[in-house]
Design a protein around this nucleic acid. Structure first.
Length: 480
RNA sequence: GCUCCUGUGGUGUAGUCCGGCUAAGCAUACUGCCCUCUCAAGGCAGUGAUCCCGGGUUCAAAUCCCGGCGGGAGCACCA
């Protein structure tokens, strides 16, 4: 039945962020689902900036939203940056359109001016709540014929039913609502009103939004009915939750896409992870490119319960993408997390550094800590760290001396050859000292610590190859 | 308080519509083993869910019905 409607009607989705802050991760996920649904159905997408709240909306946030969406690989067919046939795409520039409909409602007596004071309203609200009633406007100004004040929309008391593509049939009693304010004045319409007008004007076919809007839907439907608009299809996505299961937008921590961007998450990984929050393909596959998501996404497979945003899983997926990434590209992305003097290193060397470190990375920013050993002139570490198991200090020294000697005469300076040389040295050393022959730790551990200054690092051969002969021998001497 | 949505291991989820094939699959996290000079990565294994609870229907229920309880969201001259 859904199919039939779609055949006759063009699929048009909208991305409606509000520029009162940076692009929120929950918002980004909602937009992603809109995007996937649109792309899959060959539909069009509209980026609509919901900036009717002049106090809180800022231009810089509009830019942040556009930048981060593009970074994520989400594009749109119409929007404030590229325009389109249903523009303008910032609500703050659409006042005339809203005004027209506002006047229509007013003249048809479907809306009216109200000049109750906020103190008065607040008192009534308190009273209603204390009596166990849902707080709602009592309709005092309904028939007063005021000519100024806020504009209220007359909500008729009835059962409002609609079909949600994810939740099925949903029913609300609009009698519990009370007349809602749809505009502060004729020039300043409010959210519920503009959203309904714009969705109609922009010919939006499907409204896919967060579950927090589920109980707002009857207001929108009533408004549509009064205005004579068609009703779009609705789908309400489960909310993104904090670890304590509260709504994620109410968290103070990292909730902006730009936070994750800066921390070094890859856009592909973030997209993959976000898609899995509330959706699954019904198979055991869980690594998806955007292209695959577009093919395999379906609203029917969207979960109904809220999904906790689990950073551990994000880290895992991100690590996976990092490991899969070709060295040149990964290196380029890592550049900004490397110290300034990385410019003294050749592209080839930087690639090697990244290559030997990438299995340890969860995020791009990890590269800083993981690779500082390659960029520092003098390593600072406790001499004790050089000791493998219960080795004697004298033996550590001897092991390092041996490494120094063998490496000094190495002809081919690459990891593979160095490994061969050092394995032989290790065997020789263990035999002389009476250590277990196969345990290479007696030489390799002191060597690796001498080269890295860390208890965990890439192997000594890789490090040596990257450092080069001169620097390698220098570090060994410093450790002695 | 009222309304609506929702409820499978710590987390994301499969299975729920069309009851039995799985006393619950996968992934993550955690633990251990293997690999190994270390840490990762990789391979293997394990801990962890009486499927929110209580009734009912049935030969049989995570799956159907009823009643509770828990969680969340919304009830703005914010969006």
């Amino acid at each position: 039945m859904l199919k039939k409607k779609q055949e006759t009607k063009k699929i048009r989705l909208r991305f409606p962020p509000s520029p009162t802050g940076p692009l929120h991760i929950g918002n980004a996920r909602t937009i992603l689902f809109n995007y996937l649904f649109a792309k899959q159905n060959n539909g069009e997408t509209v980026l609509r900036i919901e900036d009717t709240d002049k106090e809180r909306s800022k231009l810089e946030w509009v830019q942040n939203i556009i930048d981060e969406l593009k970074w994520l690989g989400i594009d749109w067919s119409e929007g404030p940056d590229i325009d389109g046939k249903f523009g303008p795409y910032k609500q703050s520039q659409r006042t005339d359109i809203y005004k027209k409909y506002l006047e229509k409602l007013l003249s048809e007596k479907k809306a009216y001016y109200c000049n109750c004071t906020s103190e008065e309203l607040e008192a009534k609200r308190q009273d209603q709540q204390s009596r166990g009633l849902a707080p709602k406007y009592d309709g005092k100004c309904r028939d007063k014929n005021n000519i100024s004040g806020v504009i209220r929309f007359k909500i008729e008391s009835k059962k409002v039913k609609f079909n949600d593509l994810i939740r099925g049939n949903v029913e609300f009693d609009s009698g519990l609502l009370g007349d809602i304010v749809i505009a502060k004045n004729i020039e300043t319409p409010l959210y519920h009103f503009v959203v309904v007008v714009d969705d109609h004007e922009m010919q939006i076919s499907h409204v896919i939004r967060g579950e927090d809007h589920l109980s707002n839907t009857p207001k929108h439907i009533l408004l549509q009915e009064s205005l004579g608009f068609n009703q779009p299809e609705y789908a309400h996505l489960p909310l993104l939750l904090n670890a304590d299961k509260s709504k994620m937008s109410k968290r103070a921590g990292d909730v902006a896409v730009s936070d994750y961007h800066k921390a070094g998450y890859l856009s592909e990984a973030l997209i993959n992870f976000m898609a899995l929050l509330g959706w699954n393909p019904g198979t055991e596959k869980e690594i998806f490119s955007m292209k695959e998501l577009i093919n395999e996404f379906s609203l029917e497979k969207v979960q109904k319960a809220g999904a906790v945003f689990n950073t551990q899983k994000l880290d895992h997926i991100n690590g996976l993408y990092i490991r899969e990434m070709p060295a040149p590209i990964l290196t380029k992305l890592c550049l900004e997390y490397l110290p300034e003097d990385h410019k003294n290193f050749s592209q080839k060397t930087l690639e090697k550094i990244v290559e030997v470190s990438k299995t340890r990375m969860k995020k791009l920013s990890d590269i800083t800590e993981l690779t500082n050993l390659f960029f520092e002139d003098n390593l600072i570490y406790e001499k004790d760290l050089l000791k493998w198991k219960e080795m004697k200090d004298a033996d550590i020294k001897e092991a390092l001396l041996l490494c120094d000697k063998e490496l000094s005469s190495a002809k081919k300076w690459d990891a593979k050859n160095l490994e061969k040389i050092l394995f032989e040295a290790s065997e020789k050393f263990n035999r002389e000292k009476g250590y277990p022959v196969e345990n290479k730790g007696y030489t390799l551990w002191p060597l690796r610590v001498a080269l890295s200054g860390k208890k965990a690092s890439p192997g000594p051969f890789e490090i040596a190859e990257i450092l080069g002969k001169e620097k390698t021998l220098e570090r060994i001497k410093q450790a002695l």
